[in-house]
Design a protein around this nucleic acid. Structure first.
Lengths: 149, 149
DNA sequence: GGTGTTACGTTGGCTCGGCCAACATTGGTC
DNA sequence: GACCAATGTTGGCCGAGCCAACGTAACACC
């Protein structure tokens, strides 16, 4: 009934450490994005869009890793706030062409700033060397488990 | 419209790397636990219980980090499978005393074995040194962001 | 010895990220 | 022209993490 410790099996299990730190990370990121009324998917889509230029929803899905069906809702949100435009592709009537608006671009940079400071809160206990080391290790894990990256 | 790459902003953002690798980690862990019809909470609760010995639900909540309300459902599941017993505490009629059964203990070791091999698939691309390094960094992050550990 | 505060178990509900199946519409191929 | 593949969309599911509320029971203080 006293101070909470997690079982020591868990405390050194990599998968546990990963999912727990990830929970803290998303909490920090969520509140950062929340100050601008955005969620993870909103940022991811805007960022993808800024990089690829105008694209169809299916393409955005592939590049962002967000499911086709979730893309729909995310674009709805962003379009409602005029951060993004959705227009039918005249050359392929199955597709919509999505492009980011100037307001969307401005919002993206705000979000990026918010995220930058979020990284700092997240990595506070690590010095620059350790931060790079962490990134290196995580990238290695990711490229190994990611079908394509 | 080609191979999927994530925007390069994201590919080096620690919070992104963390949440993405955590997603892969939980996928791997889920399928490992799934072979024994268990989920994360089931393992966490059994592991906590094995460590603390018989305890009330509130204590289990504190030690495992699982919310009081989720403890209820988890114990229901485990009790249905006789991996755990729930009995009223005669000394404090608000409480239930939960204890792990022999079958629960056996199941726990099965789950632990499943998880051990899951760690290997997760960490496949890292040599022992890098694995320790990763654990070290993640633990540092966790103890910093964890109210108590 | 009552009264107010705190703890416990439980119900019900919500969010977010990640998925999947199905279906109508349209495009491309044989 | 018949088949197959891709697109957008709807609706649903899951797991983990939360929170509010409520009845019951224990405890502390006066």
């Amino acid at each position: 009934m006293q101070p909470a410790d997690t079982p020591h099996d868990l405390r050194t299990t990599p998968s546990w450490l990963l999912t727990q730190t990830a929970t803290h990370a998303s909490r920090i990121v969520s509140t950062a994005l929340g100050t601008r009324h955005a969620r993870g998917y909103h940022y991811r889509l805007l960022a993808t869009l800024a990089e690829t230029g105008p694209a169809s929803q299916a393409d955005l899905s592939r590049h962002s890793g967000i499911d086709r069906s979730d893309i729909v809702a995310t674009i709805n949100d962003l379009a409602d706030r005029d951060l993004v435009h959705r227009q039918p592709d005249p050359n392929d009537r199955r597709r919509n062409i999505i492009h980011i608006t100037p307001a969307g671009r401005r919002e993206l940079t705000h979000l990026q700033h918010a995220l930058d400071t979020a990284q700092d809160t997240l990595l506070a206990p690590l010095d620059p060397t350790d931060r790079h080391e962490l990134v290196r290790l995580l990238r290695r894990l990711l490229t190994h488990h990611e079908p394509r990256d």
